[in-house]
Structure formats: structure tokens, C-alpha cells
């Protein structure tokens, strides 16, 4: 009887050790999760495709019908200067206004620490733009849906569209389909063999006095707003009437210079684990 109890005890001990080995947090783990939530707006209003009407800096009213952009090469800026650079292969995100899930960028394996800002490339860098097709999957797959409003790839002039804003406006001329459309498709990574314009923008967004803490218990979510009105209002005032369609033209650089300033930090929340 006494010995039987001993065996039961030993069995229990063995199972307990096993369970502990599985469930105890890895003492080596020093990374957590960081979330970037993007919110597309028009000035102080939420952006509504197809139904919202807004006014740009020149007073032209417009209704956006499509708004997409690539966020890539994300770097989290740490207060101690040891920035965290998201591994290249996991650092390409296509944000579409029609797809709320695409507006939430969840970064895993972020080192514990205090973060005071983020920087990213709006677009797809030249290296990735010219990389072997096998290294361009997911959002970068040239064989994924690039038709209509979803199109973010130029097949005839190999390259990605970094930012696309389309809409209707009484200021735009009537097109072949009878509607007053304007279309801004901004790309150009600098060229492969021949140097072309380069509309890639590295955009830092600092959190002001806020610090986003990543540790075993905390998952911060920082809220960044992208304001479409800034696409019209920056170093160059963009007129829908004068430039209803900008794609493959040098003027695309003026629009890129404007949208480089469209992002702003709007606060953070912190989820507590356990």
C-alpha cells in the first residue's frame, strides 16, 4: 500500500514536470507583439468610399472610390536607440480601404522595450521590385488580383503602384464612360537599367511624448491616421481640374511629396496579457 502510493506520487510528479515544461513561459523569450492600426481619414472625418464627399485645399469637392497603399520596410524606433527592423521578408503590407483587416499590421517577435516611433517606406523598395518572382508572394504577388480598383502592379512597365487614389469629382472632366473621374496611380522605384524618377518615401511617424512598451504582459497598438486631404495639400497644391489623371508622368513626384506627409500619430492602446 505504502509503495503503491509512492508510485502514484512518482507518476504524478512525472506528468507535472512534463506539463510545466510545456506551459511555463520560455525564460529566454524577450520578444512580444506590436500592432500598427491604420485609419484612413479625410481631414477630421472618417473616410467613406463611394458615399463620403470631401473638399480639397483648392475647394474642389470629390468622392473617393478607391484608396490603397503599400507599407513596407517597417522600423520601430526605440528610446534607447536600438531600433528594431522588421525582417525584410515579413515587412510588406498592402493596405486597402475596402479591407479593414489589411489596416491592422501585427508585428510579432518584437524585442521587449520602449518604442517612441515607427518609420516605413510607402511603396515597394527597388531591391524587392526587381527581385526574383519567387521572393514576391502575398501582397507582392504580381499574379494576385491587380484588376480594377485592386490593381497595384503595372505589368507593361514592371513595377508596383505605391499609392492609388481614385474617385469622382465635378471638377474632373467627363471620361469615356460618362463619369467625372480622377485617378492617381503613383509608382516608380528609380528604374532597373535606366534611371527613372524615384517616388519611394521613407516616412517617420513619432509618438510625441508617448512610449509604446512591449514586454511579456503588454501588447501596444499605435493608431496612425492617413489623411487623403494631404495628398492634395502639401508642397504642391493638387488640382483635380488641372490634373485629373496622374500615373506615368513626372508630376507623380509632386503627389508623392504630398502623401509623404499624410500620416500622423493619433494615440495608443495597450492590451495586457494574462
Amino acid at each position: 500500500m505504502y509503495r503503491s502510493l509512492l508510485y502514484v506520487f512518482l507518476t504524478g510528479l512525472g506528468l507535472t514536470v512534463g506539463l510545466l515544461a510545456c506551459d511555463t513561459p520560455d525564460p529566454e523569450a524577450v520578444t512580444g507583439t506590436f500592432v500598427i492600426q491604420l485609419d484612413n481619414v479625410a481631414g477630421n472625418q472618417n473616410l467613406q468610399l463611394n458615399t463620403g464627399t470631401y473638399r480639397n485645399a483648392l475647394g474642389e469637392s470629390f468622392t473617393p472610390t478607391a484608396f490603397n497603399y503599400f507599407v513596407s520596410n517597417i522600423r520601430l524606433i526605440r528610446t534607447n536607440g536600438e531600433d528594431y527592423v522588421v525582417p525584410q521578408d515579413s515587412s510588406y503590407f498592402l493596405v486597402r480601404e475596402t479591407d479593414p483587416a489589411s489596416q491592422r499590421i501585427t508585428l510579432k517577435n518584437v524585442p521587449y522595450g520602449d518604442y517612441k516611433g515607427v518609420s516605413f517606406v510607402l511603396g515597394v523598395d527597388s531591391l524587392r521590385s526587381t527581385m526574383d518572382i519567387s521572393r514576391r508572394t502575398g501582397a507582392l504577388d504580381p499574379g494576385s488580383d491587380h484588376t480594377g480598383a485592386n490593381g497595384m502592379y503595372w505589368s507593361w512597365n514592371s513595377g508596383y503602384i505605391f499609392m492609388k487614389l481614385e474617385g469622382t469629382s465635378p471638377s474632373a472632366p467627363v471620361d469615356a464612360t460618362g463619369s467625372n473621374t480622377f485617378r492617381y496611380h503613383i509608382g516608380f522605384f528609380g528604374g532597373r537599367d535606366t534611371r527613372t524618377i524615384n517616388n519611394l518615401k521613407t516616412i517617420p511617424v513619432l509618438f510625441g511624448t508617448d512610449v509604446a512598451q512591449v514586454d511579456a504582459e503588454k501588447v501596444p497598438t499605435v493608431l496612425l491616421q492617413a489623411d487623403v486631404l494631404k495628398i492634395f495639400d502639401g508642397p504642391t497644391l493638387l488640382s483635380i481640374k488641372t490634373n485629373p489623371e496622374v500615373m506615368i508622368s513626372p508630376f507623380s513626384s509632386s503627389i508623392a511629396n504630398n502623401y509623404a506627409q499624410m500620416f500622423a500619430y493619433r494615440g495608443k492602446t495597450t492590451a495586457t496579457l494574462n
Partner: peptide
């Protein structure tokens, strides 16, 4: 008895392994 004891240990360790 010592053999019996060994079997119990084996069962316990096996339990620990499969639980992971």
C-alpha cells in the same frame, strides 16, 4: 518491485513526452 517501479517511471515520462 524495482521492475514495477521502472515501469511506473517509464509511463510517467511517456506521459510527459506526449503531453508536449
Amino acid at each position: 518491485r524495482w521492475q514495477f517501479f521502472g515501469v511506473w517511471i517509464s509511463v510517467a515520462l511517456f506521459g510527459a513526452v506526449v503531453s508536449c
